[in-house]
Design a protein around this nucleic acid. Sequence first.
DNA 1: TATTGTTATACTCTATAACTATA
DNA 2: TATAGTTATAGAGTATAACAATA
Lengths: 137, 137
Amino acid sequence: MSEPRRDLLAVLLPVTRQLRRIEDDAAAAHGLTMWQYAILSATAARPGLNQGQVAGLLGYSKNRMIGDLDELERLRLLRRSPGPDRRANVLTATAAGIRRMQQVQADIHRDEDRLLAALPPGQRNALAAAADRLAGR
Amino acid sequence: MSEPRRDLLAVLLPVTRQLRRIEDDAAAAHGLTMWQYAILSATAARPGLNQGQVAGLLGYSKNRMIGDLDELERLRLLRRSPGPDRRANVLTATAAGIRRMQQVQADIHRDEDRLLAALPPGQRNALAAAADRLAGR
DNA sequence: TATTGTTATACTCTATAACTATA
DNA sequence: TATAGTTATAGAGTATAACAATA
């Protein structure tokens, strides 16, 4: 007999809760919030984006992002500069911002590895591949 | 060359956001919230649990759960009854509660199937299996 | 004294809608 | 008029601690 089917959300929520804690802790260890880290990460990976584009990319919201951007600029980790359309601010991570982001990311990947060690390597790749495929729609 | 490694949370968040909306909508279509559905589901699957145990199982909190339990009792979908330890309330889903829960669940599984149709079947199983394994710690 | 459920409170998060300056 | 960023505000969500009944 087969087990009753479990809601996928119920299966995924505990994992994402652990991952969320990993990112929160890693960011905090380097003086940032998770969202500030996420903003730096997106900005470094795809330079030239404006605020709205980064917000959309992260599934964040443009108004919530403003306080984070203020703080990141205050810390000299990121710059807002007027783009060709002078309504839109182009975001650029500074060298210090990229370094900081990489430090947080190294901690995150280290802790993810610890978590994922429970999985056989095939399943580990399958998890990321499946989630990646699903996220695309 | 290989792509830069992506944070697992960034990969999983978009999927869980979609799943969360699926559950919210399905529960709302039957007059419940997602958490009320989750409570009914856990209570039906493992009868005899008390409030704190259900809260722990769901990753919810005992005080937030109280309003939901009040509402579920008002709707005659669930009962609180004193257990052997008279401090603790044993939760029991009524027949109507189980039916309601199954209706919501059918909607959820239908919409999950629609979402998961994007995946090759092997990846689909791998996703659930991997998440399940990880959730256990 | 510790625990279960409850209540109260404060704090954070989130969503919505204006407002400005550009287009 | 429409859009990008900003600001203000209200509502939902969340965490914490205190309380009553029971162990």
